[in-house]
Design a protein around this nucleic acid. Structure first.
Length: 635
RNA sequence: GGUCCGGUAGCUCAGUUGGAUAGAGCAUCAGCCUUCUAAGCUGGGGGUCAUUGGUUCGAAUCCAAUCCGGAUCACCA
């Protein structure tokens, strides 16, 4: 089995870390090293070595060598941009290109031909290099994965409040966190998936108060409602009552601020929070009961979405942490105390403001507990990295958090990374659960599954399935479409979702990719082959004919997968895999339309094409698996 | 007001450290099912890359200014 290694060798030609293992001074690399490098990397090395040999005096650094995929309208596979050298070497692009092209052809075994078009050297890779690549990798289910120095990474995501059900915006967070976890695992890291539940505070008490007053003893069992939805219902109820009371007080002559402070239900809620903090038995029991309902509801949703966690943190356990860190900071002189006893940090030198860390009465604020939790995580797991999947509205908060830890001298500071994502908005603006303008996560999932059913039935695709198989299939398609829809966009961009328009099952979607996969499965069934045929099946394969353009396009794209996966990992960006997989499926569909496998021109073509589609299906499965999307064999 | 993020086709989005004539999907129009699954394929129309200036062989990409949208700057969480 072949794995792309972590770049750990300092390459003498490129003067940077890469996979060449230091062999690249020699133009012909040892076979075992060659196999580990992508053709793009090999080409970069070959060009570097060629320039060094041809023009030993020229000062050429690796940044100047830019290797791109050749644009489809030109002949070639990889393109070397010649302009950066032109000025330095005082040579015309064509002359340099010829020199370089001839040298590469004479001294390496990779290129069949070259062409120079207005300053670009287009290199065509030999067909047998592609054939080798296929034979070596076509049935490697782990193609693209890395086994390097693993880092231990915690990824915190989801992190819900226990006063309402999950909504569409949470789904983006959950899918991002789950996908990034898988991507980091596939690139050689040890991943701990964590969920920090916000289970206490005034907002939790709001649903509790409303339930006490208006709940009539309702339970999930008595009403048949999912626990999180039942509790969420009373959260909305609280706000309705609160608004009415405030309006009443204003009508009675109070100003708005006073009215908001003095609304009876708000006073009751604050009293309840005080009782909770004092450990009042009755309050705690109610709190546990209602949170229990919510957790049961969340479990159902997480289970349906196919996500899980390795470690749960509860804010009721962690909210008192962090005070000790503040003490340390005071002793070190990093923090200071104001006259009223409150503790602050001065971040003006960093372009920020002063920030409060402890109130005058010694109680914590939001960021205090986050400081403590960051340290707790680090101490428990000795993390190299700690990733927080949190919406971009908290960019400032996370920046301050990291800065404070750094100033206090906590070792956990360096590993903290905020995976910031844009909010999902409705055409009318932000979703507000208080106002009931949310798209519920459970509803959304169910609607997507129903849509999958509707479209399958309309297309007459239900034959040959049992009812059970169909239900499973609709879930795979519907949830796949939902995940893909939320993951295909660059995380940092905000999204607008219009509930009136359903999520599409055509075009740039998971369904499109799933469909391409089922077509490949269908081909293999017809050929009586398993999804992963053995290498022996192709033992007699010899390439004698030219590889057709649509065949080559697929092979070339497959060869890119390891670098795409690696980029998705370093940038914490699953959307790169979405785009990659969609393009691969697209290329397959075009290929499929033109080249038959069952009726291939000859046995050689048949074998070549089978290797291509087997590998395409395998890479599609791998890429989609990272996103939590399954690919059915039939649909 | 300070800081940060964004502005690319009617809509939703791609566009690697600056590279060739700015690309997909949706929508729209025109074709393609006796042939491995048409949830598919092929083609057409559709662009002042917010604006202006700069940097250079070359700018959607880098710099500056301006305009528009959003987030944030609490002894809330």
């Amino acid at each position: 089995m072949l794995f792309v290694q972590q770049p750990v060798f300092l390459c003498p030609v490129l003067n940077q870390f890469c996979t060449c293992s230091g062999y690249c001074n020699q133009l012909i690399l040892p076979n075992n090293i060659l196999q580990l490098m992508t053709l793009s990397a090999k080409t970069k090395h070959a060009v570097a070595a060629a320039l060094k040999s041809l023009l030993p005096d020229a000062e050429i650094n690796s940044d100047m060598i830019s290797i791109n995929l050749t644009k489809p309208e030109f002949t070639g596979d990889y393109t070397v941009v010649l302009f950066p050298f032109v000025k330095l070497l005082r040579m015309k692009p064509d002359a340099l290109g010829t020199l370089l092209g001839d040298y590469l052809l004479a001294h390496t075994d990779l290129y069949a031909s070259y062409a120079i078009v207005s300053g670009f050297l287009n290199l065509t890779i030999k067909d047998n290099v592609w054939a080798h690549f296929l034979l070596n990798n076509f049935n490697d289910a782990q193609f693209g994965e890395q086994r390097g120095e693993a880092e231990r990474v915690m990824i915190e995501y989801s992190s819900p409040n226990t006063n309402k059900p999950l909504h569409f915006g949470h789904l983006r967070n959950i899918f991002l966190g789950a996908a990034v976890s898988e991507i980091l695992k596939a690139t050689g890291n040890e991943v701990i998936k964590a969920n920090l539940i916000n289970d206490r505070g005034i907002h939790i008490c709001k649903s509790m108060i409303a339930w006490q007053h208006y709940g009539n003893g309702d339970t999930p069992e008595s009403t048949g409602m999912k626990g999180d939805h039942l509790v969420g219902h009373y959260y909305v109820k609280f706000n309705d009552v609160y608004k009415a009371q405030v309006a009443e007080l204003i009508a009675a002559g109070k100003d708005e601020k006073t009215a908001e402070k003095e609304a009876p239900i708000m006073l009751e809620t604050q009293e309840m929070l005080r009782k909770w903090e004092a450990g009042d038995a009755e309050t705690r029991t109610l709190w546990q009961t209602m949170n229990g309902w919510v957790y049961k509801g969340f479990d159902v949703t997480y289970d349906k979405l196919g996500v899980s966690f390795d470690k749960m943190y509860y804010e009721s356990d962690t909210y008192l942490l962090g005070k000790q860190l503040v003490e340390e900071g005071l002793q070190k002189g990093v923090l200071f105390k104001k006259e009223d006893g409150s503790v602050w940090i001065d971040l003006k030198d960093e372009g920020l403001d002063e920030k409060l860390l402890l109130r005058g009465d010694g109680t914590s604020v939001y960021i205090t507990q986050d400081l403590g939790t960051a340290k707790l995580k680090y101490d428990q797991y000795k993390l190299d990295k700690s990733v927080y999947v949190i919406a971009d509205e908290q960019n400032y908060h996370m920046q301050v958090l990291k800065l404070i830890l750094k100033k206090i001298g906590e070792p956990c500071a360096d590993g903290i990374h905020h995976l910031s994502y844009g909010m999902v908005e409705l055409p009318t603006g932000r979703m507000k659960s208080r106002e009931g303008t949310v798209v519920d996560a459970d509803d959304m999932a169910n609607e997507m599954i129903a849509l999958a059913r509707e479209q399958a039935e309309a297309a007459g695709k239900t034959e040959g399935f049992t009812e059970e198989e169909l239900n499973k299939l609709y879930a795979t398609i519907g949830l796949g479409a939902l995940k893909f829809y939320l993951l295909r966009v660059d995380p940092k961009k905000k999204m607008i979702f219009d509930p009136k328009e359903s999520i599409d099952l055509h075009g740039f979607t998971a369904t499109f990719i799933q469909y391409a996969h089922t077509r490949i499965c269908s081909i293999l069934r017809k050929e009586n082959l398993p999804l992963m045929p053995t290498a022996q099946h192709f033992a007699s394969f010899r390439l004698t004919e030219e590889i057709a353009p649509l065949e080559k396009k697929l092979i070339l794209h497959l060869e890119q997968y390891p670098s795409i996966l690696a980029a998705a990992a370093t940038e914490f960006n699953p959307s790169e895999l979405c785009i990659y997989a969609f393009q691969l499926a697209q290329m397959f569909n075009s290929f499929y339309d033109v080249h038959s496998i069952s009726k291939a021109e000859n046995e050689e073509k048949k074998q070549l094409r089978i290797m291509i589609v087997v590998m395409a299906a395998s890479v599609l499965r791998h890429a989609m698996h990272q996103l939590g999307i399954a690919l059915p064999e039939k649909m």
